[in-house]
Simulated assay, not measured.
Amino acid sequence: MESRIRFDWRDLELFVAVAETGSIARAAERSHTVASAVSKRLADLERELETPLLERHSKGVGLTAAGAALLGRARGLIEQARQVEQEVRGYGTGLSGMVRLYANISAIVEFLPAALASFGREHPGIRVHLEEHVSDAIARAVVEQVADLGIVSDQPQRDGLELVPFRTDRLQLLVTPDHPLAGRGRVRFAESLDYPLVGLPATSALHARLQREAADSGRELHLPIRVSSFDAVCAMVAAGLGVGVVPQAATTPYIASLGLVALSLDEDWALRQLFLCRRAGEPLSPAAQRLFAHLCQA
C-alpha cells in the first residue's frame, strides 16, 4: 500500500524561502506570515520526513544534506505546480482547452483554414479538433453534444439547434472545354440533366439539393459515378465522365489546373448559405465561446 504525502505545497514554498534567505524571519517576511508559523511548519515537515532539513544557529539557518537534496526537488515541484495551476485556470477563462468542431467539406476547404489559423495565433492554448461530416450528421452531433460547434450548409430541420449565418458560397457547373454547354457562360441546372452527373455521397446536403431540383424539373439525376470530395469531382469531369456541380471557391485551383470550364448556375439556390451552429439554450465552454465569437467575426 502506498503511503500518503504528508506535506503540502505551502510547506515546500516556506522551506524554499528559508533556504534562499538563510533566515526564518526574512522568509516569514517574504511569505507574508509570522516567523513562529514558519518555524512550526518546518519543524512539522522535518518530523513528517523523519530527517532534519535545517541547521539552526544564532546567525540564521543552513541546509543539511537532506535539505540540500530537497531544495532542488522542491523548486522543480513548485514550478510544475504553478504551470498546472495556470493551465487549469486557463480552462475556466477560455485561454486553454479543446473545442470539437464539425464542418462540411465546403467550409473546411473554403473558409476554415484562414479562420482557424488566425484563431490559433490569438489563442495558442486552445486546440481545435476538426472533423469533416455531412450537414445532417453535424447537426445531430451538436445536438447530442458530440461536437461543440458545427458548420452546415442550408438549414437543417432539427430541434435544439441555434443557427447563425456564417458564409455564403456559390455553386457552379463544371464541364470540359469540348462539352456542348461549354460556350454558354450561364445555364439552368435543368439543362445539365441531359448529361451524366458526377455526384457526391447520398448523405451530403449538396446531393439532396440537386435531387430536389431535378425532381422539381420532373427529371431524375443520372449518377453513374459518386465520389467523396470536390477535387475528385473535378478529376472525374476532366476525364470526361460527366458534368459536376461544385462550390466556386473550393474548386478554383483544380478547375484551372485541369483546364475545366466553370458555368454559372442561373438559379437563386446556387448561392448557398452556410450556418454556424451550437446547442440552443446551453452555455458553451469558455474555449468554445471564444472560437464561436471568432468565427462569427472572422
Rank of each mutant, 00 (worst) to 15 (best):
L200N: 02
L271W: 01
H123Y: 13
I24K: 05
V61A: 11
H207L: 06
S229Q: 08
L163C: 10
M236V: 06
P201F: 02
H57G: 15
P283D: 15
E213L: 04
E132S: 12
R82T: 03
L263W: 01
M98L: 14
A256C: 10
G183H: 04
D44T: 10
L12C: 09
G259P: 09
K40H: 14
A147V: 00
P156A: 05
F7S: 12
G92D: 03
D11V: 05
V175W: 02
E46S: 12
P180G: 04
P113Y: 05
L163Y: 03
L101S: 01
R30N: 02
A147Y: 11
A280S: 09
I5K: 09
A37K: 01
D169H: 12
R188I: 00
G92W: 02
E131S: 13
L210C: 08
L54K: 03
V198I: 12
R4V: 14
G62S: 14
G94C: 03
L210G: 05
D169S: 13
A202T: 13
A208Q: 15
E46Q: 13
R26E: 14
R75F: 03
H57R: 15
E87N: 11
R6H: 12
P124S: 06
Q289N: 00
V84W: 07
V237E: 06
S229I: 09
I126G: 04
H32G: 15
E220Q: 08
L284P: 07
R10Y: 06
R73H: 09
M236E: 10
A137R: 15
S96W: 07
E2R: 02
A202R: 13
R26D: 08
Q297M: 10
P124N: 05
D169A: 13
V99C: 10
R167A: 14
V152G: 04
A117R: 13
V109S: 14
R184L: 05
E29G: 03
D148R: 14
D148M: 10
G160T: 04
R272T: 08
A280Q: 15
L210E: 01
F292Y: 15
F189N: 01
G259Y: 14
I105F: 06
D44H: 09
I108Q: 12
I105Q: 11
S39G: 08
R75P: 06
V175P: 02
E2N: 00
A208I: 02
R188L: 10
A65K: 03
L130Y: 09
R170N: 07
V34S: 09
F111P: 00
L14W: 14
P165L: 12
F7D: 12
